[in-house]
């Protein structure tokens, strides 16, 4: 039991750091190039008006960088992992939509130059699955940390006293 719990903890930690590093790398890959290249990638999905495309192209990489760093640090894990899962869900849906529509466009995931293919879908799908796992584990460990520790039954055979209802913890 303790072994499987340990394995889950380690898996979560590794996934969390890997996802964080990927997000930081994705941000760096966009920020090192002129924003117009990312804007053209976003625009190729033909979903948003030009002013919104420009706004996203200028801000999304910074947001990805921030999320990646916070995820690696492990701060506000439930919020960060939920945001990353939501973001990946949007990315994955857009990629699948483009593939289904037969659009041979640049995915824009790690800067320009990568045309959407089954490899892109597999990679983003795996990242989404990993992120959902990290998010689920963040909520599960939070619930566990709020539950009172089980008490050992008294040695004299009397039934154990039920634990009082504790107030919810304020910390994450």
């Amino acid at each position: 039991m303790a072994t499987s719990s340990n394995a889950l903890r380690w898996t979560t930690l590794v996934l969390r750091v890997v996802l964080g590093v990927i997000f930081v790398y994705a941000a760096w890959a966009k920020l090192r190039l002129p924003w117009q290249l990312f804007a053209m990638s976003i625009d190729s999905y033909q979903l948003l008006p030009t002013p919104l495309v420009e706004l996203l192209a200028r801000t999304l990489p910074w947001f990805e960088l921030l999320l990646g760093l916070v995820l690696i640090a492990g701060w506000w894990l439930r919020i960060t992992s939920t945001m990353i899962s939501a973001l990946l869900l949007v990315f994955f849906s857009l990629i699948v939509r483009a593939a289904l529509k037969g659009q041979e466009i640049s995915c824009g995931c790690f800067g320009p130059g990568e045309t959407i293919s089954w490899k892109t879908m597999l990679r983003d799908g795996s990242m989404l699955a990993g992120s959902l796992f990290v998010t689920a584990m963040a909520f599960v460990s939070r619930r566990r940390s709020r539950m009172p520790a089980p008490e050992a039954p008294p040695l004299d055979g009397t039934p154990p006293v039920p634990a009082p209802n504790l107030p919810p913890s304020e910390s994450q």
Binding site: P34, L37, M40, S41, E54
Partner: peptide, 19 residues
Amino acid sequence: RLPIPFPVNYGFLRSLIDG
């Protein structure tokens, strides 16, 4: 060498070249 995503939005390409 910068790969230009396709389809090309001329407004963004112009902004890039002008920059």
